[in-house]
């Protein structure tokens, strides 16, 4: 008798398990319709801000010796397709390295390098580059002040940088990328290579880069015309962004 009731409770248990399993698999199928697309695992909470700005710049300098080959010993790269890192905002480099680590930003060169760094290494390297000054007497073979844009492109770009385009809903570049205002994780562009700026604008536009939180750059780069993208890249790459108003 006792044995019998034990067996029936086992059957009951199995039946309940089967029902729970079926229900949960149905739920999973239902929720599978819209898998969440996460652009980046970074969120600018207080802990993140503290972790990103707690680096040791001296240790970062030693670690950054291996970055010199591409990003330059003074933080200015010799090739235009590689970004300059000198004086870059701490949070901006930190976010990109974290995105490379989590494969949210795709780069054949940077993903393995970022993966090899610990989170402490990332914070240290970031601290070093953010404190690296923009030397007035460069000793390296840098690409940076590129050729100046023609008058047409300079006018288009300086207007977009300073005022954006209210009709199309393009905010001014300088309201997030400086010097007027910055948002956390947004890079300063004033000393960036033109080739790199252009490649990133195009990557955002064709969605091959999609790690911008709440998609501001994917939206804006899609609204910009091909000509405007070139104009903006030439504007920033020639150092015009360092002296606002000089191009007019």
């Amino acid at each position: 008798m006792r044995r019998n009731s034990g067996r029936s409770s086992v059957w009951n248990f199995l039946r309940v398990t089967a029902v729970v399993f079926a229900a949960s698999s149905l739920l999973l199928v239902a929720s599978d319709n819209a898998p969440e697309r996460v652009p980046s695992y970074v969120s600018w909470s207080q802990e993140t801000l503290a972790a990103a700005s707690a680096g040791d710049a001296f240790r970062g300098m030693l670690l950054a010796k291996r970055c010199d080959h591409c990003h330059g010993s003074e933080g200015f790269s010799a090739t235009g397709s590689t970004p300059n890192l000198a004086d870059m905002d701490e949070l901006a480099i930190w976010k990109e390295l974290e995105d490379f680590r989590s494969h949210k930003r795709i780069s054949r060169a940077m993903e393995p390098i970022a993966e090899s760094l610990s989170s402490r290494d990332v914070a240290d390297v970031v601290a070093y580059y953010s404190k690296l000054p923009v030397y007035t007497d460069p000793q390296d073979n840098r690409n940076f002040p590129g050729s100046r844009p023609g008058p047409g492109h300079a006018a288009i770009a300086s207007h977009l940088v300073a005022f954006g385009d209210g009709e199309r809903g393009i905010p001014p570049c300088q309201s997030c990328h400086g010097p007027v205002a910055y948002r956390p994780g947004v890079p300063s562009l004033m000393t960036q290579n033109s080739e790199y700026v252009l490649s990133q604008l195009e990557a955002f536009a064709n969605r091959s880069r999609a790690n911008d939180i709440n998609m501001p750059m994917r939206t804006i780069s899609t609204l910009l015309t091909e000509d405007e993208r070139h104009a903006l890249a030439e504007y920033y790459g020639s150092g015009l962004g360092l002296q606002p108003g000089s191009s007019r």
């Binding site: 819209a34 898998p35 969440e36 996460v38 980046s40 969120s43 909470s45 939180i213 709440n214």
Partner: peptide, 16 residues
């Protein structure tokens, strides 16, 4: 809702 982590999970992820 947490304004800093809208993109991570919940109702306001970018594909929703």
């Amino acid at each position: 809702v947490d304004p800093l982590s809208l993109h991570l999970a919940g109702e306001f992820v970018e594909n929703n």
